[in-house]
Structure formats: C-alpha cells, structure tokens
Write a protein that binds this DNA or RNA. Sequence first.
DNA 1: GTCTATATCTAGATTTGTTCTAATCCTCGA
DNA 2: TCGAGGATTAGAACAAATCTAGATATAGAC
Lengths: 140, 140
Amino acid sequence: MTTDLLTRLRDREWRLSAQRRAVAEVLVGEHVHLTAEQVHDLARERLPEVSRATVYNTLNELVAMGELFEVDVTDGPKRYDPNVTERHDHLVCDGCQAIRDVPRSSSPDVPPDVLGGFLVTGVEVTYRGLCPSCARRHRP
Amino acid sequence: MTTDLLTRLRDREWRLSAQRRAVAEVLVGEHVHLTAEQVHDLARERLPEVSRATVYNTLNELVAMGELFEVDVTDGPKRYDPNVTERHDHLVCDGCQAIRDVPRSSSPDVPPDVLGGFLVTGVEVTYRGLCPSCARRHRP
DNA sequence: GTCTATATCTAGATTTGTTCTAATCCTCGA
DNA sequence: TCGAGGATTAGAACAAATCTAGATATAGAC
C-alpha cells in the first residue's frame, strides 16, 4: 500500500492546522470524487467552524502541491480526486454523475505529424456511460 | 467535403431566424472553438441586437440536436465545436487555452473486466501541452 | 391582407460555483 | 511576552449560465 494523503502531507512539513486536517481527512478513501461543497459539509461534521473559503483555499493548495487532482468531467462543480499515486482514467455516469477510477489500459498517443509543433505533456481519457444502477433504471 | 452546418440546419427544417442564422454563421470554419461570449460578440457584428440569452438558447438547441459539441476542457467558459462529422479528440494549450482538433488515432478501449457493470457509450481524449507559440515563450 | 396560435427574442434578475477582501486569530521564534 | 507572518473567517464580489415574463415575429388559416 502506498503512503496515504495525511502521511504525505506530514512528510512535506505542510502546516497542518485543525481545519486543514479536517479537509484532508475527508478526502481519504476509495473512489472519492467529492465536490468542494461536499468536502465542506463533511469537514464541518468533524470541525463545525471550517469556512467555505478555507475549504477552497486548502483544496487549491493541495492541487498546486500535486497531492490532489481537480477533475472537471461533468457539468456543475469540480470534483477532487485524491488518487494521485496510480495513473488512471475516469468513468463518468451520465445519469447520476458518479465517477469511478479505471486504471489506464495503454497510453493513447497522437502521431507526431498531426501535432503541428504542439508540445504534448499529458493525456486525459474520460469514458462516459451509465453506472449499473442508472443502466437498470434506463432499460428496466 | 461534408455538408456544412447551415446546410444541415436547412435540411432539418429548423426555423432559421435572423438571430439564429447570425449565431450559426459565426460557428462555421476550421478549428473554431469559441466561447458563448465570443459567439455573442461575433454574432452582434452581423446583427447588433442579438441578446446573450438568444445566443445561449441557440447554442443549447444546436447541442441538443447534435449539430454542435460542447467542449469543456479548460477552466472558464465552455467552448463550442461545430466539427461533429469527423471523429476527433482535442489538443489543449495550457498556456493560452487554444484548442485544436486532432483526428482520433485509435479508439481507446477499457478492458471489460474493470467496468464493473458500467455501460460505456463514449470516450473522450484530451491531450494537454503547449502550442507552438506558447512553447517558444516558455523556453526561448 | 388580416388574424391568431405558436415560437422566438429580449433585458434583466437569479442561480451556481468560485475567488477575493479585510479583519481577526494563531503559532512560533526572538 | 512580543511581534511577524501565515491561516482562517464571514461576507462581498465575480463569472458563467439559466430563468422569467413580457414583447415581438412568424406561418398558416381565413
């Protein structure tokens, strides 16, 4: 098992206030893709006086540090993905907006001749469809 | 050459008012990925009294008809992509947010065993990097 | 040509998601 | 203990998009 978010933050000597800890703790887990609003709600269950601004500040800092990915694959608010250690893509349900991580099968490459001088540094793959329960509802 | 947007709209018997025509005309061309605001500005050059609401209404109708793609690959406003006839992916410049279409090289597939009951209906691939002029500016 | 039903358009208000601001609060080293 | 600087806060501000209600245009029937 790879080191988790809280451990990595401690190792970075990142000033870990009570508020920041509350935010970070919310993000630990499998297939977690919360919105800032959801992070705020969950963080307040641990520490009621965490403000929205602090949640946004903290999330943005974590993203800047590379300890969190911003995922913007649906309409509406951004989601935050703490799975930064395993290279993966996303599977998005068009029904309920659920997001699931999928390990990357193979790196899709663009043939260099179509790039026209573009310097490519990264690739994102998003699969869209219906999650099991939305698929059932859609064709019962 | 495939039929263009205006022709297809006429064939669909879509009520083509002066305002809608002004919006649609703006979208014709190569590698056009305008924001709603840019579409509004350009449409007003043709027909000064087009309102923002009409631009949004028209864009959303075209998207619903499948005659226009909504592309949301950058922070900030959505972009609209009239290239619906050729299957393609997007190349996004992290410097200036320019978007370029690239023909899809090969369909990326998820191995069915990782899907866990998810019904996949589509895939989007986004390449990120720096366009020629931003790459020059970045390492001169 | 006129009338009527229906679709479309408009300005402006509203909603949503996010960032900014200015004041206050901690924390830690001197 | 004090002071400096970062962290936090509530609320204002902002940006993108949508909604609303009334005005306007249009096509087809007469």
